[in-house]
Amino acid sequence: MDSPLPDAIRPVMQNGVPAIIVTCSAAGVPNATIISQAYYVDAMHVALSFQFFNKTIRNVRENPRASLCLNDVEGSVNWVLDIEYERSETDGPVFDEMDMQIEAIASATGMSGIFKLRAADIYRVRSVERVPIDAST
């Protein structure tokens, strides 16, 4: 059964800290990649940017399951989402918003012109896990 995204996760998706996604090819080889940002679509969906035809993009088209980690460094917590690729959008409000935010991130990180949005990939959220950081050292 799918789990909705809690409200507490929304600021984490906008904190500018890169997220991490792990996918798996049909042949069973996992792939871990850093992504600039994940986007809140609605309580049951997130969007990830499709900028280059890379391994992540190929993998989710072969095997739609993915594991997404959102980082809240100041709050000492991570959010791990079990997500499933549903579709790609090449226009519309989600695409336009992502395109604008990607350009802003690229500009802020000195990588303007490197990032270009091809599509907004929409994923269904299957489960959400809050993982507090154990600060004991």
Binding site: V22, T23, C24, A26, N31, I34, R65
Partner: peptide, 16 residues
Amino acid sequence: GMAGTRDASLVPRIRR
């Protein structure tokens, strides 16, 4: 750094 594994059903899992 971050790591990834997958289970017998090809479901991937992030490992910090």
